[in-house]
Nucleic acid binder design. Structure first.
Lengths: 178, 178
DNA sequence: CATGCCATGTAAGGCGTTACATGATTTC
DNA sequence: GAAATCATGTAACGCCTTACATGGCATG
């Protein structure tokens, strides 16, 4: 559902092919789908069937033919009707590391410190990658882009702060109960 | 995979039935599976097949028979081998609200303010629920429990702070470009 | 000569969810 | 008398992922 409306939204800005959509999704940090063919091409077909999109086939000489999709009035209406009706959804925060950590505390306490350190490093790496992406686009960031970046950055920062404190408390605990 | 090892971990603390596991998962905030029958009973069967669990059927007079599962030595070994070998996994943060917001900025800018406010309220509610759970268990919280709570709380707080700032910046922007 | 990009699509399967089915006992 | 708890399991389905298939063109 969300994916279909997302496609509708992306195509509202400018008509695109399925291949373009795939790249946009892969490049975005908030569009969390993998951007795989199966979903995108099926969704496009479905949206055309619902009258929300039109498709125009363009033949190219030095590349395979492509289908450019554009949003219809019905599509624009469907999108805004949906936006007006859906309740805001809560974020879902799935952290397999927390599960791993819980298991380790009982089954391999010796590894807890190393795991926390590794987690920290992983987070720092990802945060740095996001910062790099941000740096490169400086100047061409819209209000929305800035908010999306800020959201992700706060998330990473919160996790990093947590990891620091958890590691600190773990070391204290290890000294007390050796 | 993770689910199976999680079950192994939970049963390491004490033998339980599938029904018990379901309740433990539903009660946990870091065990993000819905705790549905289909997965749990299948996983238990699979783990028995792998020799990681034994099951003992217990007949009860005033309730249906139940199967109590316990971890074998092979199971304990499999768990610690896995813990020693898996790399720490990064958190996956899927926030459908960010997608909704992105769409709204273009397709329904008039709703953006209300959406941010609603998101804030939703977050506050969930944070309050977590605090309540925390308050009730005060005193019986292990180091791990405290860390898991702290992690979730930092997450909510980061989102709340973000929402505040986004709302503030949105209102400023609205005044500048009316 | 290999790799990668452009571009569309299909196939197979894993993971996860809700809902269904059963049936006795306890609680309001 | 209705609803929840205990307890195990099945069925159907949706979502999402990887991998496969095709084939020309460009780049190193």
């Amino acid at each position: 559902m969300l994916l279909e409306y997302t496609i509708l939204g992306l195509l509202s800005e400018k008509p695109m092919t399925g291949y373009d959509l795939k790249k946009v999704m892969a490049a975005s940090s908030c569009l969390y789908w993998s951007g795989n063919n199966n979903q995108i091409y099926k969704a496009l077909l479905s949206l055309v069937g619902q009258g929300c999109l039109t498709s125009e086939t363009i033949h190219q000489d030095s590349a395979p033919s492509k289908k450019v999709y554009a949003v219809t009035d019905a599509g624009r209406q469907a999108l805004s009707a949906w936006l007006a009706s859906v309740p805001v959804e809560p974020p879902e925060f799935r952290n397999p590391f927390l599960v791993q950590l819980s298991l380790a505390v009982f089954a391999a306490p010796g590894r807890v410190g190393a795991m926390l350190t590794q987690y920290r490093e992983e987070l720092e790496l990802r945060q740095a990658m996001e910062h790099e992406r941000h740096r490169r686009r400086q100047g061409v960031m819209s209000w929305l882009d800035r908010q999306l970046f800020a959201n992700l950055d706060r998330f990473y920062q919160a996790e990093l702060d947590w990891a620091d404190q958890a590691l600190c408390e773990w070391q204290q605990r290890s000294e007390e109960n050796p």
